[in-house]
C-alpha cells in the first residue's frame, strides 16, 4: 500500500474510532443534566456550568484522538 494512502486510512480510523466514546459519554452527561433540570428547574443555574465542565472533560479522549490524527496527517 502507498504510504500516503495508509496515512489517510490511519487518520480516518483514529478519528472515527476515537469519536465513539466521547459521543456516548457526552450524550449521557447531557441527558442526565436535562433530567435533573426537568426534575428541579430552579437548579438549572447550578447544573448547566457543571454540565459544560464535565462535558469538556469527557470530550478530552476525543480530542486526544484528534491530536493524534493531526500528527498523522500534518507532521
Amino acid at each position: 500500500m502507498d504510504i500516503e494512502a495508509a496515512r489517510y486510512i490511519g487518520a480516518g480510523l483514529a478519528m472515527g474510532l476515537g469519536a465513539i466514546g466521547p459521543g456516548i459519554g457526552e450524550g449521557i452527561a447531557a441527558s442526565k443534566a436535562l433530567e435533573a433540570i426537568g426534575r428541579n428547574p430552579e437548579a438549572s443555574g447550578k447544573i448547566t456550568p457543571l454540565m459544560f465542565v464535565s462535558m469538556a472533560i469527557t470530550e478530552s479522549t476525543g480530542i486526544y484522538a484528534l491530536v493524534v490524527t493531526m500528527i498523522i496527517l500534518f507532521a
Binding site: A56, I57, E59, S60, I63, Y64, L66, V67, M70
Partner: peptide
Amino acid sequence: SLSFRLFGNIFA
C-alpha cells in the same frame, strides 16, 4: 492529558 486537552481543543 492536561496539555493535550487544552492544546487539542483550541487547535481543533
